[in-house]
Simulated scan of single mutants.
Amino acid sequence: MDASNATNEILNPLAYISGNGTVYIRVYNSNGCYAIAKVNLTVIPPKRSAVLADKTICIDARTNLDAGPGYQSYLWSTGATTQAITGVGVGNYWVILKDNGCSVKQLVSVKKAEDPVISEIEISNNTATVHVKGGKSPYQYAVDSPANWQDSNVFTGLSRGQHIFYVKDSYNCTPVSVEVTVPNLINTITPNGDNKNDYIDYSALGYKENLSFVIYDRYGNKIFTGDKFNNYKWDGRHFDKKISTGTYWFHINWNEPNKEKTPIKYSGWIMVKNID
């Protein structure tokens, strides 16, 4: 009807955008006579690559991107005109794929692998348990050298002093690490004034951030808190009175002075022998 009445004209047929449908065209001869032609429009759907997908790699690694076979032509954002491009790093890319005379632009990203984070280390006597978050599990763990990896996050038989714990995830990127102090352990004090094992002393950890040192009895009652005012030393007293001979538990918490401020939880027991 529009073609017969010369209404709803398509003003720029070269830039006409349409889905599936029908258009009508007036076709004139040299005498000015016309006929109406019917044209059915069928949209050819773009053929996107089913194999081209985002990738995740280590920040300093390289990978390949493959759009798959079967296209008339390829044009990558790198300028390559091959089916695949090789040795690309982290970044955003695109490829124009031509099929059956039609082209589609497909985006693809190469993303940096998220580093795992050592979220906490628990130390009990000479055993350390390393807790990790982020990255992609499964994780692997090592201590003092990033060579002897293990699947377990528990390390036993640690000596006193400084240790470096390493963690890597399934992407096998450069390991993350934390240096931790395993404190010197005193299991027994005899606070009788003879200057031999008269107190438990963790003042050597005074430089650690948020250092907290707490003693509990076997019922879980707090009987002492070590702080900078008492220099993190305890002589077996509660409110200036000698406590009963027995076994007591203690917890020491601090944050390592690194970028992540890794929380450390150290626990153990101590025998107090109050001898008059």
Rank of each mutant, 00 (worst) to 15 (best):
M1A: 10
D2K: 05
N8K: 07
N8Y: 04
E9I: 06
L11G: 04
L11H: 06
N12F: 05
P13K: 14
A15S: 12
Y16P: 04
G19N: 15
N20D: 15
N20G: 11
V23K: 02
N29D: 15
N31P: 08
N31K: 15
G32D: 10
I36C: 06
I36P: 09
T42A: 14
T42D: 13
P46G: 15
A53S: 15
K55N: 06
K55V: 03
C58K: 09
D60F: 13
D66Q: 06
G68Y: 11
P69R: 04
Y71Q: 05
Y74S: 04
Y74K: 06
W76F: 01
G79R: 05
A80P: 01
G91W: 12
N92Y: 08
Y93R: 06
N100P: 03
C102Q: 11
K105N: 15
K105I: 13
Q106S: 08
L107F: 11
V108E: 11
A113P: 12
V117R: 13
I121V: 09
E122Q: 14
S124Y: 15
T127M: 05
A128M: 03
K133P: 00
K133M: 01
G134Y: 09
S137T: 10
Y139S: 08
Y139L: 04
Q140W: 13
Q140P: 06
Q140S: 15
V143A: 15
D144R: 00
P146K: 07
W149G: 00
Q150C: 02
Q150G: 06
Q150S: 07
T156Q: 09
G157K: 09
G157N: 14
S159W: 09
S159V: 02
S159N: 13
R160D: 08
Q162A: 11
H163N: 03
F165G: 04
Y166M: 01
D169C: 03
C173N: 01
C173H: 00
T174R: 11
S177K: 15
V182C: 05
P183R: 12
I186H: 05
T188C: 05
T188V: 05
T190G: 04
D194F: 05
K196P: 02
N197C: 07
Y199G: 06
Y202E: 01
S203A: 09
L205D: 01
G206F: 04
G206A: 10
Y207I: 03
N210P: 01
L211N: 12
L211P: 10
S212R: 09
F213T: 02
I215V: 03
I215W: 02
R218G: 06
R218I: 10
Y219H: 10
Y219F: 14
G220E: 09
N221I: 10
K222Y: 12
I223M: 07
F224H: 06
N230R: 03
K233L: 10
H238F: 14
F239C: 05
G246E: 00
T247W: 03
F250A: 00
H251P: 01
N253P: 00
N253A: 02
W254V: 01
W254R: 03
E256W: 07
P257C: 01
P263Q: 08
I264T: 07
Y266T: 03
S267Q: 12
S267R: 12
G268I: 00
M271A: 03
N274H: 12
N274E: 12
D276M: 10
